[in-house]
Amino acid sequence: MSTIMFAMSLLLAVAMVGSAYVALQGKSLSIAVLAAGAVSLFASVMFLILAAPDVAMTEAAIGSGLTTFLFFFVLGRVRGAKDD
């Protein structure tokens, strides 16, 4: 049972680092914001594996949902700016 947990946590860790790399080097800003939301989602599952259900719920609702929407509201207002 614990080897399954260990394999899952390893898979989540690789997915988190990969998404963070895409968020930093992504070509367009929308892809970077979505990748940051994916990092938050994988972190929320990792919190559940580390036996913290309250924190997992909070991170999923706030970090993955509301932050991404805040970014997209502002992205919609700043049209016409050059990327990087």
């Binding site: 259900p53 309250d54 719920m57 909070t58 609702a61 949902g65 509301l66 929407f69």
Partner: peptide, 17 residues
């Protein structure tokens, strides 16, 4: 159960969204 004010508040804000 796991939950509370901050989680519930974020869910209510999703409805507004």
């Amino acid at each position: 159960t796991p939950g509370g004010g901050f989680q519930g508040g974020a869910i209510v804000a999703s409805a507004t969204l």
